[in-house]
Design a protein around this nucleic acid. Structure first.
Length: 537
RNA sequence: GGGUCGUUAGCUCAGUCGGUAGAGCAGCGGACUUUUAAUCCGUUGGUCCAGGGUUCGAGUCCCUGACGACCUACCA
């Protein structure tokens, strides 16, 4: 701590002692019932003209943080903020009597309780005319400048409390918006008879998503555990048990990189609906996200401004195969994809050779495509390399002004270990007989290029599921440290019979980012993971 | 993991060619009974992220490290 900081704090501590000398505790309590700033404002909203305090009027009791002090001598203006808003205190020597001297011992950041009637000043500022003033909490640490705020991102993330004080309007709105959005998600699900449940976050097996887990340990059982990467397998056990509609909004942990779109712990919404398919879930996704957006915009209209996307229904639904074809047509017209003119399966291998030897690809893209072991993995890799990054430019409103949400539909089963294979008759009908890629009834939702949701008709054949788990183990043996474990109990559960079910997962943080226009996930997570502070700073 | 940028007073930021570290706000003292970033007068406050090097002399140049941001890669 520097000398100046030390001095600033010492001055504040001394003022706290001065409060004590006047009979006020620097950290007092027992405020009794209070009026919120918002309620005071609401009560006098209609009085637009300046008015003096009505002697017969209500005496308000308001408590909050001092965020500005303007001292004009025998008259001091205090700006006070509580959880509902901000209001000015009109503090005159005449009205406050002995308490007026307290103002000299107030610092920005202190928390005080004021009593008095409302008034409106000459300049029409609604104020509380202070008749008495009681200091409640001494602030030892200077709060950041009201005018300049606090801008250094590192400090804002590490000291979110200071960020919330200094950048109250903007940061507060984002986190209130987050709360509203989560509430809206629950509303939508509750209204459709979904049951909210909580499932274990300490798991002895890895499953539900392909991701690297965090590990931890239970001492009494001497048991190594994983922090869950997804609640999926537990929620589906509940479907087996007869909870036909379940959901969970909760934290998951993935031991991966940190970026503007990834925090190691994040909030996921998953819901499972028996007797539904991924087709219905696309409609429901539009409704669910639309409901959250409507609730948000009703309260915070500013978040609807300047959006580069348009949530008007219906949203685009594009098969993965067609998205890749579209991407080739737009950017690599010379490349003739094997599916474009009905090549038989050998065409895939030839095409892969053409791509890998050609000059259209970067080295990284080539090596990425080479990692694909099957045509299904290859198609998925083609999607990632050629299409995914361009969804925002490829799919736009009729006037081209905004991007539209896109459901990418039908993922290869090779990359979808928990999704139901498309029925053979439908596969043949939609892709032709003997098509070299087997698809699943699965979609992912992309809005503004961001992957927002993942959903599919669930695999409920225990034998097929067991085979997929075995394939995951083979991937593990090849060095894939994101592969799932073989979950015997889950297979046992499926053995009892799981009704046909559709399941849905949505990144809540990313939804909040999207709807509130935040570029970094750290701006929608109150306390994002950072390295510990070191002595070097 | 790679690249680029940043770190100077409590906060927001300047700092020229390498030559005594600055401003505004906050703070402190004073004036002021209708202010709105109040105003006016005066004034305190520095581990220039850390360590090393070059130099007569380093906030400034070089090296190493810490932390952060952005891009990229990885990652559903």
């Amino acid at each position: 701590m520097s000398d100046s900081e030390h001095t600033l704090e010492a001055v504040r501590r001394a003022k706290g002692e001065a409060w004590r000398a006047r009979g006020h505790q620097p950290f007092g309590n027992d405020t009794g019932p209070l009026h919120s700033v918002a309620s005071v404002r609401a009560a006098h909203e209609a009085q637009k003209e300046a008015f003096n305090a009505d002697p017969a009027g209500v005496t308000y009791r308001v408590a909050g943080r001092v965020i500005a002090l303007r001292d004009t001598g025998k008259l001091v203006f205090v700006k006070l903020r509580d959880g509902s808003g901000e209001i000015q205190l009109f503090c005159s020597a005449r009205d406050l009597g002995d308490d007026f001297a307290l103002l000299k011992e107030l610092d920005l950041g202190d928390i005080v309780l004021v009593e008095g009637p409302a008034m409106r000043t000459r300049l029409l500022e609604l104020s509380v005319l202070a008749k008495s003033l009681r200091p409640l909490t001494k602030s030892f640490t200077p709060i950041p400048s009201e005018w300049f705020g606090l801008s250094e991102l590192e400090t804002r993330y590490r000291q979110r409390y200071a960020d919330l004080i200094a950048n109250h309007a903007e940061v507060g709105a984002v986190f209130r918006a987050r709360s509203l959005i989560v509430t809206a998600l629950r509303e939508w699900l509750d209204a459709r008879d979904f049951v909210e449940v909580e499932t274990p976050t300490l798991n002895s097996l890895r499953g539900g998503a392909t991701a690297k887990p965090f590990t931890t340990h239970h001492n009494a059982l001497d048991l190594s555990l994983y922090l869950r990467v997804a609640p999926e397998l537990y929620l589906k056990r509940l479907i087996v048990g007869g909870l036909d509609r379940v959901y969970e909004i909760g934290r998951v942990w993935r031991n991966e990189g940190i970026s503007t779109r990834h925090n190691p712990e994040f909030t996921i919404l998953e819901f499972y609906q028996a007797y539904a398919t991924y087709r219905e879930l696309m409609d429901e996704t539009e409704e669910l996200v639309g409901h959250a957006d409507a609730k948000l915009v009703a309260r915070f209209p500013q978040f609807a401004d300047g959006r580069g996307y348009d949530l008007a229904r219906p949203w685009k639904r594009v098969r993965m195969l067609d998205a890749v074809t579209h991407a080739f047509a737009a950017r690599h017209p010379a490349l003739s994809a094997p599916w474009a003119d009905g090549h038989p399966s050998p065409g895939w291998g030839h095409f892969r050779e053409v791509l890998v030897r050609g000059t259209e690809l970067t080295k990284d893209e080539r090596s990425y495509l080479l990692k694909a072991h099957t045509f299904g993995e290859f198609l998925f890799a083609l999607f990632e390399v050629f299409a995914e990054g361009h969804l925002t430019t490829d799919y736009r409103t009729a006037d081209g002004a905004r991007s539209v949400p896109v459901f990418i539909v039908d993922y290869p089963f090779d990359v979808s270990p928990l999704a139901r294979k498309k029925d053979p008759s439908k596969q043949d009908e939609q892709y032709g007989p003997s098509y070299p890629v087997t698809f699943t009834d699965r979609f992912e939702l992309f809005v503004e290029g961001r992957e927002l949701a993942n959903a599919f008709s669930e695999l409920n054949d225990p034998d097929d599921q067991a085979a997929r788990f075995r394939a995951q183990l083979q991937n593990r043996a090849r060095g894939d440290d994101e592969a799932m474990d073989f979950d015997d109990d889950y297979i046992r559960a499926l053995g009892y019979g799981m009704p046909p079910t559709a399941g849905f997962g949505l990144g809540v943080d990313r939804l909040v980012m999207l709807l509130t226009g935040q570029k970094s996930i750290r701006d929608v997570v109150l306390f994002p993971l950072l390295r510990p502070e070191s002595d070097g700073r």
